[in-house]
Every structure is written in structure tokens, then in C-alpha cells.
């Protein structure tokens, strides 16, 4: 195997020659959301460090998260998380040798997309109205 990319053939995932179809979109989204979650892991670590550092640092971190850009990032993170989690289950089922035929794979693709959205909206509904997750939320 050559270590330099001078091969003129198209590289994975062949977006330039394949007709777009749903299983392909989900495969690409799985990798993309994986990268998003990787970036988000930085946020988790900073949050944990702030919690360990003390009340002032934690309050500052929570203010950042509760700001509108912060909430938008958290919303995107939760959507990516649920998508990656559900699609990951689909891959585990495939690994067990089930659901790999075209019709099932197409159907579960849409199921993953719908349930990812439902779970994300469910989490935010619960966070907002049941638990009032953000500090000082009522004053907003």
C-alpha cells in the first residue's frame, strides 16, 4: 500500500460517483456526528474541571452554557449524541448478522433519524419544563 495520495481513483466515501441514498447519508452522518461528539467531549471535560475547581468557576461555566450560543451548542451536541447512539445500535444489530438487507436498512435509517429527533426534543422538553435545568431560567 502506498503511503502518499497520488492515486487518481476516487477516495472513500465516493461522494462524487454514487447517487445519494439514505443509508449512505447515515453512514456519513455517523462519522460526522462522531467528530462533533469528539469536539463536545472537550466541553464535558472543561465542565468537570470547573465543577472540581469551585463554585465560582462552576457558575461561570453554567452561565456560558445557559447563554443562547451555549444552548445552541448543547442542542446540537444532544442531537448528534442521540443520532450516533441510535445509529450505533443499528450497526451493532448488523454486526450480529441481522437487518442488513436493503429494505430493512433503508427503513431503519429513517427510524434512526426520527427517533434521534424525538429523543432530543424529549430531553429538552424534560430539561426545560420538568427540571428547569438552566440556572436562573425563570428570569429569562
Amino acid at each position: 500500500m502506498s503511503s502518499s495520495w497520488n492515486d487518481p481513483r476516487p477516495m472513500s466515501p465516493f461522494t462524487s460517483i454514487w447517487r445519494w441514498h439514505i443509508t449512505m447519508v447515515l453512514s456519513i452522518l455517523h462519522r460526522a456526528t462522531g467528530m462533533v461528539l469528539g469536539a463536545g467531549s472537550l466541553l464535558i471535560v472543561v465542565w468537570l474541571a470547573a465543577l472540581a475547581a469551585g463554585e465560582k468557576q462552576y457558575a461561570h461555566m453554567m452561565d456560558l452554557l445557559a447563554s443562547w450560543p451555549g444552548r445552541a451548542i448543547l442542542f446540537g451536541f444532544s442531537l448528534a449524541l442521540f443520532f450516533h447512539l441510535l445509529n450505533g445500535v443499528r450497526y451493532l444489530v448488523w454486526d450480529s448478522g441481522h437487518g442488513f438487507d436493503k429494505q430493512t436498512a433503508n427503513r431503519t435509517s429513517w427510524m434512526v433519524l426520527v427517533f434521534a429527533l424525538v429523543l432530543t426534543l424529549g430531553l429538552w422538553t424534560a430539561g426545560y419544563w420538568m427540571f428547569e435545568v438552566f440556572p436562573g431560567q425563570k428570569s429569562h
Binding site: E55, A59, L81, L85, V89, A126, G127, F131, V133, P135
Partner: peptide
């Protein structure tokens, strides 16, 4: 992760609202 993520999410949601 399939077990831990929902577990931590639910625990956090409950603890978050009560503050530091």
C-alpha cells in the same frame, strides 16, 4: 456507552436544576 450515556443523562438532568 449504550448503558452509561442514558444513565448519566438522566442523573444529570435531575441534579442540574438544584445547582452547584
Amino acid at each position: 456507552l449504550l448503558v452509561l450515556v442514558p444513565l448519566v443523562l438522566l442523573s444529570f438532568l435531575a441534579a442540574f436544576s438544584s445547582g452547584y
